[in-house]
Design a protein around this nucleic acid. Sequence first.
DNA 1: AAAATATAGTTGCAATTTCAACTATTTCAT
DNA 2: ATGAAATAGTTGAAATTGCAACTATATTTT
Lengths: 150, 150
Amino acid sequence: MPIHKDPDPKGRAWPLFLATHSRLMERIEDALARAKLPPLAWYDVLWELEKAPDQRLRMHQLAERIVLSRSNLTRLADRLEAAGLLRREPCPDDRRGSFCVITQAGLDTRKTMWPVYGEQIEVLFARHLSVAEAEMLVKVMTRMLVVKQE
Amino acid sequence: MPIHKDPDPKGRAWPLFLATHSRLMERIEDALARAKLPPLAWYDVLWELEKAPDQRLRMHQLAERIVLSRSNLTRLADRLEAAGLLRREPCPDDRRGSFCVITQAGLDTRKTMWPVYGEQIEVLFARHLSVAEAEMLVKVMTRMLVVKQE
DNA sequence: AAAATATAGTTGCAATTTCAACTATTTCAT
DNA sequence: ATGAAATAGTTGAAATTGCAACTATATTTT
């Protein structure tokens, strides 16, 4: 059985990368919505806070970890705070800034979201990867993330 | 030189995938904006139309190719049309529908955007892939895209 | 051939995102 | 120490997105 080599795998990889991302996100958001759960962005915030030392992060740390503009994060945090999933606390060292601290309700919500989210990751993504492929993906994407602007 | 295997490459791959996508999109949009060019979504639409037979597509075909909700696409097309980059034409076979047809200005704009966009793809993405890695990426992502809902 | 159902695309409205401007500190360079 | 520049975070206003409802036409069922 002859193998037909793709004449330009690099040229095809990028559009596929974009399409895959859109499609997977669409499905994940849909699964969360069907389960009456908050959107993925909320999960990201909650999870970063839960992992963080003292379960708290400054706004800018959070913004950089979840790759979100500052103003965007301010309002995302507003919504999470309004829902009681986090609270803001003044920062003693720097009176300009504040911490976001995850609340018990936030921990609970994150835990409730995980089975739904995790199942989608498995079905849509992980299932299609061998361990070797996953390792290669990690290597490749790590390289891409390291690139400095300009 | 000992190799330290990642204990859980699959678990790391997904968050990295999300982060890589955000970061790369951010950089690309930024590069386009700095060059006073339209956003990436416009490029996608123009390129799909340019490639299409007769340089035209029905709204639903376009929506499915660029992975965008219908209503979202209606308004994206409105903007492109307002900018003179495409025009709508009634569909003779189906009086509910219409075609989007790319205009000469649309072809020109797509061509102007490409060097900027293409350079970012190279610098941020393609440069970090060997041919073998690109081939693997294509294989893996193709699998993921084939998954049927439910 | 009528009624029921499905598909194409648009639109109102509310939610979210973006951009630029703004306040309040903090840090740096004289 | 003082003024200039940088950083933290928020906010108003405009642009974009998403959801649900809606119009119009096509297709299927009886």
